[in-house]
Design a protein around this nucleic acid. Structure first.
Lengths: 244, 244
DNA sequence: CGCCTAATTGACAAATTTCAATGGTGGTGG
DNA sequence: CCACCACCATTGAAATTTGTCAATTAGGCG
């Protein structure tokens, strides 16, 4: 993927937890905070709440979503260990956050966090990087929601998850999906039925095999990539004629 | 709209263009840069290019987009006078930018911009605010693309444009649409035909009347709001049934 | 082992896209 | 100044994709 090759990540610095020096990494900053946890299904905060804190997911998975009229839900993202919740917001949360699974997290007062970042030149680029990642992800999602077919959406999602997992276990070929089909549907802008049918169809084609209810063993990751539909690196310059 | 009530805007400070003091606003920072312009239809930069500059639109309109396989185009945003292009990016542009109309702009080296912002405590919150706005806009767009009907998308778009124009001329009731229907379609994740049909339908309902090819006089802005589908501020908890 | 909920599957409906044709507008050159 | 051309927009009809509604199946946990 293109985006992966783009940025240097500054958030892999060695951790300095020494109390006399300011922390060198955001991770170190959070590591001093108390560890909390919430049950699967419970709410971390609601859209519109005063945004008093920032959160770092330590363990588990969160879903971040908005609700619009007649109860339609849009999951704008899932958050995994190491992710920050609420980096780019002002005084109110723009979305709600719930635990998909039992989730442990640390939190930080927004004001204190800002102060810490502002006073540390080494933290600023890290925060900026995180924000850029968030923005890039948002744009990828807009592409997905705007123009991709159900099949492309599901493949993109699985690929995203696979790649993410491979950052920690490079050889992993089983995509773990702790969230429900409804969560996936609300993330991909589809219905539960369409997600299910698409998974069935891809299974039939031998792209993967289900492994329990929350796992898919990827058999042909190349096909997955091909079906994901973001191969703008294709033949030539990508300025070719378009429909009609 | 909810988002509008959320943040304080720090970018309305009085401009200090005095050469001896650092500029107090991003606008002031840019105001010292040379004015350039590009023709309608020409390219400012391409996705994947080295991101050497940041741009401020002075006059005109830009479209910002990505292209995926088989030439599908996704316009992730339009940029109007006062907007910045490329605040949240690393070393490469994540999207291409083209002029919709003749556009005048100023630009700034990214490195210099970062330095200026980092060395000025008054600029930092301004930049942060811009980034938050960008993120909030991206999320609104995800909601739109994920779950809204064609009618809701078109109404949301027109409302967005109307509100934007009313920031400068509060009583304006004519939405100016300098972009083509294809641009609108690629922004809303629809086809040109669906956009056209939807506009026809809304015209028939007396929501607005066309004024030339690039203008719509809004007659019933309340209806427009109602049809836009983001009335989560409703009576009570926002889980009520709606519309038609 | 059996229940409960999540997931799958099927038949049908609805919304949007696709394909095709027509209409309109603005610009340019005769 | 008008006519024509190119491009953009609109409209219609058919096709396709996805959503909706209604069963049915199957994991996983007590």
């Amino acid at each position: 993927m293109h985006a992966a090759s783009i940025g240097q990540h500054f958030n892999r610095f060695p951790v300095n937890a020494d109390a006399t020096n300011p922390p060198l990494t955001i991770k170190a900053l959070f590591s001093k905070q108390a560890l909390n946890q919430i049950e699967a299904g419970s709410t971390l905060f609601l859209e519109g709440d005063q945004a008093k804190h920032l959160y770092e997911v330590v363990d588990g998975v969160l879903r971040v979503f908005k609700i619009i009229s007649d109860g339609r839900r849009i999951i704008t993202g899932f958050l995994f260990p190491g992710d920050l919740v609420g980096v780019s917001l002002r005084d109110r949360y723009l979305y709600s956050a719930e635990a998909v699974t039992l989730t442990r997290f640390r939190r930080f007062g927004r004001r204190e966090f800002q102060d810490a970042v502002n006073s540390s030149p080494s933290l600023q680029p890290q925060l900026f990087d995180r924000i850029c990642d968030e923005m890039a992800a948002a744009q990828r999602q807009m592409v997905l929601l705007s123009r991709k077919s159900a099949e492309e959406r599901v493949c993109s999602f699985l690929l995203e998850r696979l790649r993410h997992q491979q950052q920690t276990s490079p050889l992993a070929m089983v995509v773990d999906l702790p969230m429900t089909r409804l969560d996936i549907a609300d993330y991909l802008g589809l219905t539960i039925e369409t997600v299910s049918r698409t998974i069935t169809k891809l299974t039939a084609r031998g792209i993967f095999v289900p492994e329990g209810r929350h796992g898919l063993r990827i058999l042909r990751s190349k096909s997955l990539e091909r079906f994901a539909g973001d191969d703008y690196e294709d033949d030539d310059c990508g300025h070719v004629a378009r429909r009609n």
